[in-house]
Amino acid sequence: MELTSLSHLRPGDKGTVQTINGTGLFFTRLRTLGLCENSHVELLREAPFGGPLQIQLSGKNSIAVPRQEAGHILLRRV
């Protein structure tokens, strides 16, 4: 199945992370929060007017990531 980027998900869509193409501290921190290869994410909401994306990580943590960085996270839809 084809990979989609996190920024292309619609609210309610779920996926398994396959590759993270980003570099830098931001992605290192995402990984510590559990957003790493093979983890599950769900897109919960989009901020108004094209703002950041709120995602649910495995576990209870929920964070919002900028749309641009979300584009670097590739996943397989579930």
Partner: peptide, 10 residues
């Protein structure tokens, strides 16, 4: 500017 995330505490 560096990207940052917003935490959603319950």
């Amino acid at each position: 500017s560096l990207p940052s995330f917003i935490e959603f505490p319950p």
